[in-house]
Amino acid sequence: VKVFRALYTFEPRTPDELYFEEGDIIYITDMSDTNWWKGTSKGRTGLIPSNYVAEQ
C-alpha cells in the first residue's frame, strides 16, 4: 500500500470510480494499470486517475 495526496478534486463518471477532493489522502492498493489505480479514501474504495495524485 502506498500513500498519495489528491492534487485535484475528482468527480466519478462511473460507479467504479472514487470521488475525492483536493488534499485528500488516498491509500493505493493496485497500480497494475498505468492510468487508473485502485485506492481507498474516507472508507470508500474505487478507481482513481493516476495523474490526479502525488506520492507522499
Rank of each mutant, 00 (worst) to 15 (best):
K2S: 08
K2F: 11
V3M: 11
V3H: 06
V3Y: 09
V3A: 11
V3L: 12
V3T: 11
V3P: 10
F4E: 01
R5W: 10
R5Q: 10
R5N: 05
R5C: 09
A6T: 01
L7K: 09
L7Q: 04
L7E: 04
Y8G: 06
Y8I: 08
Y8S: 08
T9F: 05
T9E: 04
T9Y: 05
T9K: 12
T9N: 11
F10A: 10
F10Q: 05
P12E: 01
P12T: 05
P12G: 07
R13E: 09
R13N: 12
R13W: 05
T14G: 13
T14A: 11
T14V: 08
T14H: 14
T14E: 10
P15A: 12
P15E: 14
P15H: 09
D16N: 12
D16Y: 13
D16A: 13
E17S: 05
E17Y: 11
L18M: 11
L18F: 03
L18C: 02
L18E: 02
L18A: 02
Y19K: 10
Y19F: 13
Y19R: 13
Y19Q: 11
F20I: 11
E21V: 10
E21S: 10
E21C: 08
E22K: 15
E22V: 14
G23E: 03
G23S: 03
D24G: 01
D24L: 03
I25S: 05
I25G: 01
I25R: 04
I25A: 06
I26T: 07
I26L: 13
Y27N: 06
Y27F: 14
T29K: 06
T29S: 12
D30S: 05
M31P: 03
M31N: 07
S32R: 11
D33A: 07
D33T: 07
D33N: 11
D33H: 08
T34Q: 14
T34N: 14
T34H: 13
T34V: 14
W36I: 06
W36R: 04
W36K: 04
W36E: 01
W37K: 02
W37N: 00
W37L: 04
W37M: 03
W37H: 02
K38R: 14
K38I: 15
K38H: 13
K38M: 15
K38Q: 11
K38C: 15
G39F: 02
T40M: 13
T40E: 13
T40W: 15
T40H: 14
S41Y: 10
S41H: 12
S41M: 12
K42A: 13
K42Q: 13
K42I: 04
K42G: 14
K42N: 15
G43I: 02
G43P: 01
R44W: 06
R44H: 10
R44D: 05
R44Q: 11
T45N: 08
T45Q: 11
T45G: 07
T45L: 07
G46D: 01
G46Y: 03
G46A: 02
L47I: 10
I48K: 01
I48H: 00
I48C: 05
I48A: 03
I48T: 02
P49L: 07
P49K: 06
S50N: 04
S50C: 12
S50M: 08
N51W: 15
N51H: 14
Y52K: 06
Y52W: 06
Y52P: 01
A54C: 12
A54L: 12
A54Y: 13
A54N: 07
A54G: 10
E55P: 14
Q56D: 14
